[in-house]
């Protein structure tokens, strides 16, 4: 038998689900896998999945690290709205692109550090600590945009971040792939990933054994804020405007779902960034598939919920055990039949 790399073997459920959903999409819409070059960029439904999935993918990177520490970050959608508003107001008041991006990312980082401080320094439970910014964030964003959709139709340099392309790939796709690779290298090529998992398993024990859990906790929330900032800039640049009411609305839920589908437990500990990225792609393939299918919109959420329920049931510990038992039974049966045949002879 050919040796399957561990990384593939560990993520088999996600790969199977992704393959099944993509196959379903191809049945629904025969041109799903066709990719052509349009205006110097790759164009097709598959590219749409990668491109539209960018915000959730980025959020999922930060969310995975936070969840691995047994935390959760509910504020990421609101941070996207704040950062989009900041980016739009900076660029429209005449700042250059580097200054705008730096300002926007700094605000996202500050939001993350705020969350991290509440969790790591004041020991407030993460769900409550981040709920504060989730609720307040949209208000802050609206204050920045003064309640209107702040547009920047005449700023091609910022629009490029959302709808430009590089090497024929849409910019958002490049950004999330680069950031994902960076994040994976940082946590897996150093001990950082292990330390994050240690905190998630038992924060007190890891502190006692010399892990600086405060700094690491602060850092993971800061990273989550930063990821949300990048997603916020992309979302604003994509529509050439900052929509404080709707940017990133409910995306924190999709990001959490992506992490869970990716096989990381909400109880903290072991995490998989690759799994979360696949989770995000599964969710986006589902969204795109539903849009392509042409069902009446009343069914959108029901279909999505039903499919996600199936995925979670398949992944649940109970059905995993059942499958393992089934496999073991079949093996013993096979062995029994074999030995009986032996005896008969």
């Amino acid at each position: 038998m050919m040796a399957i790399p561990t990384i593939v073997r560990e993520r088999t459920p996600q790969l199977v689900v992704l393959a099944v959903i993509l196959a379903l999409n191809a049945i629904i819409s025969p041109g799903f896998f066709s990719i052509e070059i349009q205006n110097g960029r790759l164009y097709g439904s598959l590219i749409d999945v990668l491109n539209r999935g960018a915000p959730v993918t980025l959020l999922a990177i930060g969310m995975t690290l936070v969840i691995a520490t047994k935390g959760i970050d509910l504020s990421v959608g609101a941070v996207m709205a704040i950062v989009g508003a900041v980016a739009a107001s900076l660029i429209t008041s005449g700042y250059s692109l580097p200054a705008t991006l730096a300002g926007a990312l700094f605000v996202g980082l500050a939001c993350g550090i705020w969350n991290g401080a509440l969790v790591a320094l004041l020991d407030i439970q993460p769900i409550i600590a981040t709920l504060i910014l989730m609720v307040a964030g949209r208000g802050i964003a609206q204050l920045i945009t003064e309640g209107v959709i702040l547009t920047f139709n005449d700023k091609p340099e910022l629009i490029f971040v959302g709808s430009g392309s590089f090497l024929n790939l849409p910019m958002p796709v490049i950004i999330w792939i680069v950031l994902a690779i960076l994040a994976i290298l940082v946590v897996r090529r150093s001990a950082l990933g292990l330390l994050i998992e240690a905190i998630g398993v038992n924060r007190r024990a890891s502190t006692l054994s010399g892990v600086n859990s405060r700094v690491i906790l602060l850092a993971v929330y800061a990273v989550s804020g930063l990821c949300a900032a990048v997603a916020g800039v992309i979302a604003a640049a994509d529509i050439k405007g900052a929509d404080a009411n709707n940017a990133g609305l409910w995306l924190e839920m999709d990001a959490i779902l992506a992490v869970v589908i990716g096989g990381t437990s909400l109880l903290g500990g072991r995490f998989s960034l690759i799994g979360s990225l696949m989770g995000a792609m599964i969710i986006q393939s589902l969204n795109t598939g539903i849009l392509l299918a042409g069902f009446p919109p009343e069914f959108n959420l029901i279909i999505k919920a039903a499919i996600i329920l199936i995925i979670l049931i398949v992944q649940s510990p109970a059905s995993q055990t059942a499958m393992a038992n089934f496999r073991a039974n079949r093996q013993t049966m096979a062995i029994k039949t074999e030995s009986r045949e032996h005896a008969a002879r």
Binding site: S29, G31, G44, S45, D48, R52, I149, A235, D238, I239, G241, D243, N245, N246, A247, N287, T288, L291, L292, G294, P297, N300
Partner: peptide
């Protein structure tokens, strides 16, 4: 299909219309 009255969803849904 619904675009939820927003620009982002309007754009995403329109993309799927064009493909389909």
């Amino acid at each position: 299909q619904t675009g939820d009255f927003t620009r982002t969803k309007g754009k995403e849904v329109a993309e799927s219309f064009l493909k389909a």
